[in-house]
Computed example of a mutant assay.
Amino acid sequence: MKEFLLIFRRDFVNKEEQPSPEQIQKMMKPWQDWMGSLAAQNKLASSGNRLASDGRVVKSDKIVTDGPYVEIKEAVGGYIVVKANDLDEAAELAKGCPVLNIGGNVEVRGLVGMD
Rank of each mutant, 00 (worst) to 15 (best):
N105R: 14
M35G: 07
I80Q: 12
V106D: 02
E22C: 06
G55M: 04
T65A: 10
M28C: 12
L44A: 06
E17W: 03
Y79V: 01
Q25K: 13
Y69N: 05
A39D: 09
Q41C: 02
L87V: 08
R9L: 13
L38Y: 01
G110D: 03
L100Y: 15
V64Y: 09
T65Y: 10
L51K: 07
E89K: 06
I7C: 13
R9D: 04
G103D: 06
K2A: 14
V76D: 07
K59V: 10
E71S: 11
G36M: 06
G67Y: 12
G36H: 05
G48D: 08
A90W: 05
F8E: 00
V13C: 09
K83Y: 01
N101D: 15
G113T: 06
L111D: 02
K62Y: 14
D86P: 14
D115H: 12
I80T: 13
C97G: 00
M27N: 13
E89R: 08
S53Y: 09
K83M: 13
K73T: 15
L93I: 02
L51E: 11
E92L: 07
Q18R: 07
P68E: 03
D88T: 14
N85T: 11
R10E: 11
Q18N: 03
G110P: 05
V70C: 08
D11R: 10
C97R: 01
K59D: 04
G36D: 08
P21W: 13
P21G: 09
L44Q: 09
N85C: 03
S47Y: 11
V106H: 03
I63P: 03
V76E: 14
V58A: 12
S53K: 07
Y69Q: 06
L93R: 03
K43C: 10
K83L: 08
F4N: 01
M114R: 04
D66N: 08
V112S: 07
L6F: 12
F12E: 13
N49T: 13
M27Q: 13
D33G: 09
G67R: 12
M1W: 03
I7G: 14
G103A: 05
S60R: 15
P19E: 00
D88P: 01
A39F: 06
G96H: 00
Q23H: 03
E71K: 15
I80L: 15
Q32G: 11
E3A: 04
N42E: 12
